[in-house]
Write a protein that binds this DNA or RNA. Structure first.
Lengths: 146, 146
DNA sequence: ATGGGGCTTCCAACCATGGGAAGGTCAAGC
DNA sequence: GCTTGACCTTCCCATGGTTGGAAGCCCCAT
């Protein structure tokens, strides 16, 4: 099977297959006399594993570990689970960071009239240091008159 | 003010300040006779704006737009709001993607015993095509007996 | 004036991926 | 057999945002 067919069958682009080979994530493919790489169904199977792992957000380094465990018949499932759980924790941190961003930004957007006038609490919020300061929607008692 | 002091005052590293200057995000800094860059409080103000925008996940390209609006006294707040909202939408997409990953992965982790034995539904899940297949936690009504 | 820290520029690396150029190979049709 | 077009090969470059380092000059305090 040519690299293009392996790519189509696995969902990993030919570019990336070569890259994975070059970086040692996958073993060097067999070659035909012509120099073309030759892939078996087993190879495609492995590539699909990689593809799927990438889709779940694993880094290539993590996939290297996963592949090792995958191939190791005497692995302990606990090790796989630990790896997966640690990745989940990482994903959750990233989600939390993004949610912090949306929350802050949503507050700012809510405070902005969004009309033809130049006054804009969003820009003001970007100037200030991010504490709740003046962008609170609640009327600031006492600050209105002062 | 030297670049190091501007960096400390703004929260943007000296490296990044030079990079932003090089890429045109910020104007070229004044130079002293020695060749050292010289920064004013206004410059620091701008750098803090950038820093804060980065913290909220805006790309440098988006910050370029934001800075333009920031400097434009006759901007329409609607435009800022539109930009911010579009960024929020983007953030939400990224969050949703990460949540899909955690959900799938959490299901797999939940199905894995995580003991000394090699059998591991996580690895099996990475092999298969990601449909709910066998790893569903909900009892599949009708599928149980059949 | 000397030492150490700060500044300058330039170059490289990260991670995963895509684009493209220059040239060899395969398969199909004539 | 020969042409054609799709496919393969290697190699280099770009992305984005940031950090690291090297080589050399400058500034301030002692």
């Amino acid at each position: 099977m040519n690299i293009g067919q392996a790519a189509k069958a696995s969902g990993v682009s030919a570019k990336m297959i070569r890259y994975y080979e070059q970086t040692g994530l996958i073993p060097k493919a067999d070659r035909r006399q012509s120099g073309y790489r030759d892939y078996s169904d087993t190879d495609v199977h492995m590539l699909r594993f990689i593809r799927r792992s990438r889709d779940l957000g694993f880094s290539v380094a993590e996939i290297q570990e996963l592949l090792g465990l995958w191939r190791d018949e005497s692995r302990e499932s606990a090790e796989v689970k630990r790896l997966a759980q640690s990745h989940i924790d990482d994903l959750k941190k990233r989600i939390a960071a993004l949610e912090d961003m949306t929350n802050t930004l949503t507050k700012l957007v809510g405070a902005c009239h969004g009309d033809h006038r130049p006054h804009c609490p969003i820009l003001e919020g970007l100037e200030s240091d991010g504490a709740d300061e003046d962008l609170s929607i609640r009327p600031r008692r006492g600050a209105v008159a002062g």
